[in-house]
Amino acid sequence: MAKFEEWIKASLLACTMLSVLVTALIVLSVLSETIRFFSYIPLADFFFGTEWSPQTAIRADQAGSSGTFGAVPVFMGTFLVTLIAMAVAAPLGLYAAIYLSVYASARFRAWAKPILEILAGVPSVVYGYFAVITLAPLLRAGGDMIGLSIASESALTAGTVMGIMITPYVMSLSEDVISSVPKSLSFGSLAIGATQSETVKKVILPAALPGIVSALLLGVSRGIGETMVVVMAAGLAANLTLNPLASVTTATVQIVTLLVGDHEFDSDKTLAAFALGFSLFFMTLLLNIVALIIVKKYRERYD
């Protein structure tokens, strides 16, 4: 009997260890390829170089046989698209969360929440399709009307669609935060005659600020790592620009283009994908940890 108990416990522990091993494997596998990459390409060239053209020539003796791997334009593109996405998702998500948790009637909530949850459950490839087929032509036509030339693979298209995609995520996170602010606080404010909006702006939001910041950080982390929308809607060429109407590329797009269809595994090109991947991993990890720490601090204040 006792032996059986021990056996079960041991096997459960083994499963746990396996799960932990997975994390270790991710870091190790991606890290080792990254280190190999940096043994070919100097670290400084990657992080400070402003030219990205990883397509190597076919024959080794040709001129420009090794591509250039300056990742600044790639990261800049990621940054730009994510920024646009957050410019859409932050106000939409935040206002929607406030409306749902403060104003909405129970019946309205019962309708609105599932709709937003559906929006969160739609696969990203569908958003990508929507960006290409619907939004890009729409934006270009709109740009033509007011005399702006908008690239068909503009950062604006990809960013807007990504923003819509992140909105429900930001919303549900901030709604949790807002509803965890003690009711006594807002009652105190309402009891002295403040309106709901004053209560929200002066009492609830300041109290919930750390939680909302971390919700936004998690949104940013989602945006940085999002792949399909940008693969389909953003460009391939690495332009160093902050113009939202121009075509930019992102780290995830580059990873996909560098690795898809390529069976050879030792070239600088494929290793560069791992270097980009590791940078992504590191960035999102950092954002998540910061967000978690902020939330934890915030919880302690009200528990």
Partner: peptide, 28 residues
Amino acid sequence: FIEININNLAAVPSIIFGLLGLSIYLNL
């Protein structure tokens, strides 16, 4: 440590898991 690990794993971009699959499952 495991808890932090798992919470963070949930937020790793999905494409990174593809990289893992490529280098561990396919190559290793």
